[in-house]
Amino acid sequence: MMDEATMERFFGYEQAFAHPFTRGAVIAIAAALLAAPFIFKVFRATVGVSDNTYQELWARWRSWIWICLGLIIPILLGSAWVIAGVFILSLCCFREFARATGIFREKLIGLAAVLGLCLISFAVIDNYPRLFFATPILGICLIAMITIPQDRPSGFIQRVGLGIMGYLFFGFSLGYLALFTADPLYRPLLLLLLVTVELNDIFAYCSGRLFGGRKMVPNISPGKTVAGAVGALILTTILTLVLGHWVIFPGTPMDSWRNLIILGVGISGFGQFGDLLLSAIKRDLGVKDLGDVLPGHGGLLDRFDSLIIITPMYYHFLSLILGTLGQHQPERIITGGLP
């Protein structure tokens, strides 16, 4: 059923470090994680950090190690692992959202969303992009239909609405991460997104701390300042320009000032919007974090919120400029064999 190219794409870990950016990013991340404890110690000795902040830093550092391992190992091993990892990530994110909003009590809505997630993963495994882009409406219809036989109109709009929202943001939107793996060169593309988005968060935090000033949307997120947003926008765009021009896209249509600036501004801007989206959800619910699996960060969603909006945008922008990702790979490897 599966030809050699697909097997290679799914399980070909021999190619893991073929691209220079994959090598560079993995080494840089490992170096940063190793250097962090020394920086903490130096920081403590010179500036004097309170014990609480210090503990918090260590907790965050430990969580970062797990996050990096969880993200990088599947990406290096092959696309099958990425697809499995994204499925689990979507499932956990949907669960956090469901428990925070109370939609988890509607077991049938949950079931419909999980079936939708399975369909998304299937479309990616099958390398059947048209099915993937049809999963939003198919999932929405299933979520809307599934509680009708219960004959219980009270709360219908709310349960269907919440189900659809969770499914679209944490199933479909995050599912794009798996869709990248249709391209044999998905490793640098995914790593570029993850590295820039996470650094974008850090840039925003640092420049916000340095310059302070006017609050951006104090009701949604009291900590975020305009200076932080602008700082992140500038730094992330520069980073994207440098990486894009010299490492990832040289010799491709992406390698132009216009495209790389749009990409950089997009990653930074939409990354911050994703962050604020989750903040708004949390404010409305009146909860601080959406979970507690990552000490120092909160739930998975508190860490991956920035990816929710940018991931589809990034995919479609790259497809627009470079042509559909994975277009020369065998398509419909499972359904193609159907009579």
């Binding site: 925070a100 109370g102 709310q158 409305d284 619910l285």
Partner: peptide, 8 residues
């Protein structure tokens, strides 16, 4: 009306 899980 949102009712987060009682045991969150």
């Amino acid at each position: 009306e949102f009712q987060p899980a009682r045991d969150r």
